[in-house]
């Protein structure tokens, strides 16, 4: 990794500051040519309000590190998936009491299937480790998290939902 890539990879996500942009998988590329740095990021969700802050944070981190000429580009494709959250990122989420996402189910060809029963993917309680928890709502405090409850320790917790 080049110097600029190391600096960019360490910038924190503003909504989940326990994760870096690299942990979250939204840092798609850092190129350095003759002192000019081009960073490519991708939004988690279309309405992600953090994107501007992420751009600003990347710009100021790189400028502080001595890179004067920085451009931050947004790539919409391929669309972000929780599969890009790194193993280190998953460990940090679990350590913070947020259940990390499972693998995104592979979609068969044809129409997107309707899921009428609230899915019970194996969301393990991040507090006590109980394997079978209950989803309270597929939407949480931010678009990327769902709300769950553990029947064993009775604690509520958040889960980064598969997308």
């Amino acid at each position: 990794m080049t110097g600029a890539a190391t600096v960019a990879a360490r910038v924190q996500d503003p909504e989940l500051p326990l994760l870096t942009l690299a942990d979250l998988g939204i840092l798609r590329g850092v190129e350095e040519h003759d002192g000019r740095v081009v960073v490519t990021i991708t939004p988690t969700y279309s309405g992600c309000p953090a994107l501007r802050t992420i751009r600003d944070d990347l710009g100021s981190a790189l400028q502080t590190a001595g890179y004067r000429d920085v451009e931050v580009r947004v790539a919409l494709t391929p669309a972000w998936t929780t599969d890009w959250i790194t193993p280190a990122g998953r460990d940090k989420l679990a350590a913070a009491g947020i259940s990390p996402p499972g693998p995104v189910p592979r979609r068969a060809s044809g129409p997107v299937p309707l899921t009428l029963d609230p899915v019970r993917p194996e969301v393990r309680c991040p507090h006590c480790g109980h394997p079978d928890t209950e989803q309270l709502s597929p939407f949480g405090a931010t678009a990327c998290r769902s709300l769950h409850r553990c029947p064993a320790c009775r604690e509520p917790f958040e889960h980064v939902k598969e997308i």
């Binding site: 969700y45 279309s46 972000w80 997107v112 309707l114 009428l116 597929p138 678009a143 939902k161 997308i163």
Partner: peptide
Amino acid sequence: PVLAAIAAKGVKEVTYHRDYAARWVV
């Protein structure tokens, strides 16, 4: 390509919207 990218991203989101509404209807 821009419409295609916006749509591909939207598919993931609207899948959750449809499931949410369908479960309430049921």
